[in-house]
Amino acid sequence: MDQFTLMDGINLAIIGIVVVFSVLLLLMIAIELTAKLVNRKGETSQVGKERITAKNVQSVDKQHVAIITAVLNQEVNLKDYHIKVTRKKEVKKND
């Protein structure tokens, strides 16, 4: 360690940054894969990708409005209802 120069410092800094990013990148991929494996049925993975806005609420029928209102009020969890596909289709139709 007596021979540690500024150049060694630069090398260590570069190696350190590369290693940190590699570890975190691998971890990110692992999290994504786990999510895909765990949520294979697609129950939770789709939820939330589409932001619930007033526009969306207007685009669905009354029953869905009631459910989404309950979700917005945090009374129920959206994943408990199988309305995802229907809602997405209707949003597209309206768009």
Partner: peptide
């Protein structure tokens, strides 16, 4: 909005 995260995850 963030998605729900399951307990298993």
């Amino acid at each position: 909005q963030l998605r729900d995260v399951s307990k298993t995850e």
